[in-house]
């Protein structure tokens, strides 16, 4: 996956806000880089930290989690729990030797197509500057 110069970013997007936000960026024909491979999840609170490490191990150069703004969660509090967990995770990944810029979390609502395009653009730029993410050996 990381053979091309273009970095691969895996994006975990919540169904209710960010996925719709990305959709509205598309229907609004906003120009955005094509680096993000989107995985739709019910809520940012659904994102288990191990998804993120696994994404890196399977070839992602960056991982993005995006959910509803605080207080806008479809399930009321899912993103608050996610916020705590991901704050901790960000430091943990950095500690394990994954450059902090490779993992980002954003709040993008269904109407924020513009913000989504900007999130993708700026993150792709940062990850591209870092180069391919180093991989640990696996059997594959």
């Amino acid at each position: 996956m990381a053979t091309s110069q273009e970095p691969v970013i895996v994006g975990f997007l919540c169904n209710w806000c960010s996925y719709a936000g990305a959709d509205s960026a598309g229907t609004g024909r906003m120009v955005q880089p094509t680096n993000v491979r989107i995985i739709r999840v019910p809520c940012s609170g659904r994102v288990n930290p191990r998804f993120i490490l696994r994404a890196f191990q399977r070839g992602a150069d960056g991982v993005l989690v995006s959910g509803c703004h605080p207080n806008d969660c479809h399930y009321s509090t899912g993103n608050f729990f996610a916020r705590r967990r991901l704050l901790l995770l960000k430091r943990y990944l950095e500690y394990l030797g994954i450059e902090p810029a490779r993992f980002e979390t954003h709040w993008v609502s269904a109407s924020e197509g513009q913000k989504w395009a900007e999130v993708v653009r700026s993150m792709a730029e940062r990850v591209k500057a870092l180069g391919p993410s180093p991989k640990l050996p696996s059997l594959l």
Partner: peptide, 24 residues
């Protein structure tokens, strides 16, 4: 299969990553 059975570095990291984070 959250954790592969192979004891290769990527799975070893996954194991220790999960072990510690799940009791954080």
């Amino acid at each position: 299969l959250w954790l592969g059975k192979a004891t290769v570095p990527s799975e070893q990291l996954m194991y220790h990553f999960i072990r510690a984070f799940d009791v954080a």
